[in-house]
Simulated scan of single mutants.
Amino acid sequence: MSTPDSLPADHVRLPVIRLREGAAEGGRAEDAVAEETPVALEYNGISHATMLATPADLEDFALGFSLSEGIIDRPGDVRGIDVAPQCGGVVVQVEISSACEMRLKARRRAMAGRTGCGLCGVETLPEVLRPVAPVPEAPPIPVSAVLRAMRDLRASQRLHALTGATHAAAWAAPDGRLALLREDVGRHNALDKLVGALARQGRAAADGMVLVSSRASFEMVQKTAAAGAGVLAAVSAPTALAVRLAGTAGIALLGFARGDSATLYTHPERLVA
């Protein structure tokens, strides 16, 4: 896996004029602004997707996206990852096993010629709502540990503290100790980076909990299930579809996890007072 030194920084400093009560305050100043870069993913030389992302931890992003989207089954299916700045963006070239490449090509052929965009076409629904395997059983995690980890999440968001523009996804041990954190302008990207970081470090997501600084959408639950974590805590609200998926996947889903309170929607047996 190779990463060039010429990647854009995750933020830049730009001149600004601060306004207070409708008037300029103290002349020109400087502000930290999060970088947003087109990142294209290629699998065995075939272009697959382009996202706008923060240009940091892109190897984690590529591996996590590949796992959470079902492109590969295990980290060993990736033979190599190369990151190459091109045309004002970044191309991440992922080499995958021939079996995974054949499956990806079959998926692309099935999608060819469809009309509509996003979820507008009914034919895309099986792909979006693909089934997920139930996450493995694990000892219950203290509620106090979840809330402690959520409190530490915000304090550990370096890029958000600088720019105010990024989301974070983190993994914490059962005692609430934060062990991994990744940030991105996109909440899905941040979670993919976390999933990839866990896989690259050989950590089992099931041995702890996943935390996100956003709402808990269906996709966030889907990615958490793909990683195998049994607890997902979000700062904001879940959607009804996310709650239903968490229920079938065996995930304890918490929303509005702020300070000393949270709302638990599914699988209370995964938590203990």
Score class of each variant (00 low, 15 high):
165 A>P: 10
130 R>F: 09
200 R>Q: 10
40 A>V: 10
82 D>M: 09
239 T>P: 07
80 G>C: 07
126 P>H: 04
18 R>A: 13
194 L>W: 00
182 R>P: 00
40 A>P: 10
206 A>R: 04
205 A>S: 01
163 T>I: 04
218 F>T: 02
140 P>R: 02
4 P>G: 04
86 Q>N: 11
28 R>L: 15
175 D>F: 00
231 V>R: 03
262 A>N: 07
205 A>H: 04
236 S>C: 12
43 Y>G: 00
132 V>T: 05
135 V>H: 02
10 D>P: 13
88 G>H: 02
106 A>W: 07
38 P>H: 03
213 S>Y: 02
96 I>Q: 03
35 E>M: 13
239 T>V: 11
98 S>F: 04
250 G>T: 02
39 V>I: 00
131 P>Q: 05
261 S>D: 12
90 V>K: 00
243 V>E: 14
249 A>I: 08
10 D>F: 07
169 A>Y: 01
17 I>W: 13
65 F>S: 14
41 L>Y: 02
42 E>V: 12
86 Q>D: 12
138 A>I: 08
246 A>H: 04
190 A>K: 02
63 L>A: 12
52 L>T: 15
36 E>Y: 11
22 G>F: 05
161 A>T: 14
100 C>H: 08
42 E>Y: 15
238 P>S: 02
272 V>K: 14
48 H>G: 09
229 A>F: 06
76 G>R: 12
218 F>H: 13
2 S>P: 09
62 A>Y: 00
190 A>R: 03
122 V>Q: 13
